[in-house]
Design a protein around this nucleic acid. Structure first.
Lengths: 197, 197, 197, 197
DNA sequence: CATGAATGAGGCTTCATTCAT
DNA sequence: GATGAATGAAGCCTCATTCAT
């Protein structure tokens, strides 16, 4: 009964995503997931060992995608020579997120959960990882010019940027519009940033 | 009389703040708060009627401060005539947060909880209120120049800005440094923003 | 499926009735009900949403029966013309309770709980409703003849009568005997009552 | 500080009576009693060892009065010779309650609590004792004439009568009116009762 | 494979009572 | 004598998970 199993699994996943988005990992209820998946409580455990496993099964692939993208970007960063231009940093960041968005296309929900609703799970650090990478990029570009300035602002800006991404994911479902908004956000926050730090 | 009360109350408040910061209002456990305050569960209820009352007692004053500041700013906005400059918008926003910070000085934790960890409580809308006000300011300044552009970006930017504020609150305890960081954040995100939208 | 449910539900109901009878709704303990039903506390909530729902599930049907009967009697009252005889009042009252008893046959326990142990529940007014109806009947018959007398005695008598009913329910399980006792009680308290007020 | 102690004790007693009347022994709260007595929680235990002792201290004297009266009546019963008349039974009962009422004059509240709100305390059987005595009187008078009839009705009538007394106590505060109502109740329920059994 | 009943720990809260001051 | 803080058990309820069928 492979086909049935598959159906049920799909239902569970759909219901789980909705629940995780609505309440976050920690406050989500297996009971409610089961109910909305039209299956019986205990049965959910035939498909996923427990709440954590269910969450990980949904988030894992998306997380891996993100991690992969980030790693690739990391390599690019390490290969880039000489003093950077603002433009390079901005483009790097923008392209990272365009890439992420494209790679997880159709799984924006998971991405959002990963970034904003994963408290209590093994993925709760994801947002921080992304922020760190942006901070790193900004630091490479701006540190040499900051002199006495408080470098911590780079972490702040990186966080703000990622939050902007989260808002875009949360409130806007259309892929093209998302891309445009990411572009705008990048421009507003990062274009010629060295002049404003 | 009251031979210990004050101490215990302090302990409860300290433990509660730590718990609220860590888990948010909803996921906080009275049991754990009591344990960390070194008192027995039931005893907490001598000091605060219930979880909600405890939360409100801590958050209320800070919320009122914020609300007051925002109202004042709202009046300023309504009195400002003619077409705005970028500078005006930025200054308004920056000063709002400098003001808030100053007024809640020493209670940055509460402010952070209010903004980021108040889900499920009566204060869960606070962050949104702040964001909306910034969005409103940005709209007044930028809407006339956005033509075909997607206005939603203003909401995104406002959210990102407030997140930046949260990060500053979360990671930095020194008042002067906070103020400087708010200044930097404002400059980076809002200075001459009309040229970048 | 449901391989045990019915049994357990029966056990809960039995234990609950016993507990309600013994302590009344308000002082009844879910813990004790569960213990006497030989199940674990939490499990009771699979069968009934909460204490109130459990109580209402047991009492609802019986209450509805009573309410229905009373309504019917109320209509009869309104249709009866001219000055009443003692006999009419007595018969009306007697028949009301014979009817009630017959309709809730086999659920005398619930009826008794409803009348005497429902404090704190939505049914706590039941006894008063019954008393009021009897008082009303007595008033229709006797008020014209009471002149200067204290009408409050009618309420006292009505209350005493309903208490008699309760005792019959409490102490006597046999249907026929109950009916006979209701007859006797009616005769003793109401037969030619106009001569004794 | 005898005078102070006395005052405080009075306050406790007043508050306790109000609480017991309102909620009954079992559901009464020491906290609320203390609060309404304007003293501090723990302090109540200097005056009364515990809730039970407090209740007993208030009820004891009244209970003893009742018990005394009943005993006296019991003696009268035992001395009455020959076959009784209805009138004798009725008068005995009526006078019992007039006597009780007179003896506890000014403590009708306690009497009511004893009869109706003492569940869970050592006095919860008081009502039953009174009922039994009335039942006994009725039995002496009526048993010889009941032949095949169900004697249990005598218990029912006795219970109804006592309930009537309770209602009078509960709803009517005036001594003379109470006495009149007891008279009426006796007449209605007991006058020439042998003709109606 | 599926069912849904059972479990046990934990959630918040109230209470009578005791105890240190 | 008085204070009011502390205690621990019990109240109702929910939840993730397990298990017998």
């Amino acid at each position: 009964m492979q086909y049935l199993k598959h159906d049920v699994k799909e239902n569970i996943i759909k219901a789980a995503l909705a629940e995780f988005i609505e309440k976050g990992y920690q406050d989500s209820s297996m009971r409610i997931i089961a109910r909305n998946a039209n299956i019986v409580m205990g049965n959910i455990y035939r498909y996923f060992d427990n709440k954590e496993a269910l969450f990980n099964a949904l988030m894992g692939p998306v997380y891996d995608q993100i991690a992969g993208t980030c790693e690739k970007v990391q390599h690019e960063i390490e290969e880039l020579q000489g003093p950077w231009e603002d433009e390079q940093a901005m483009t790097l960041i923008k392209q990272t997120y365009e890439q992420i968005l494209k790679n997880v296309s159709g799984r924006g929900m998971e991405l959002l959960i990963l970034l904003d609703k994963s408290g209590g799970s093994r993925y709760e650090g994801t947002k921080k990882e992304l922020i760190e990478q942006i901070r790193n990029i900004l630091e490479i570009r701006l540190l040499p010019e900051m002199h006495e300035k408080d470098v911590f602002i780079l972490y702040v800006v990186a966080s703000a940027f990622v939050e902007g991404i989260c808002v875009i994911l949360r409130e806007c479902g259309d892929h093209d519009r998302r891309e445009a908004l990411i572009g705008s956000l990048s421009t507003i926050m990062l274009c010629q940033i060295s002049k404003r730090v």
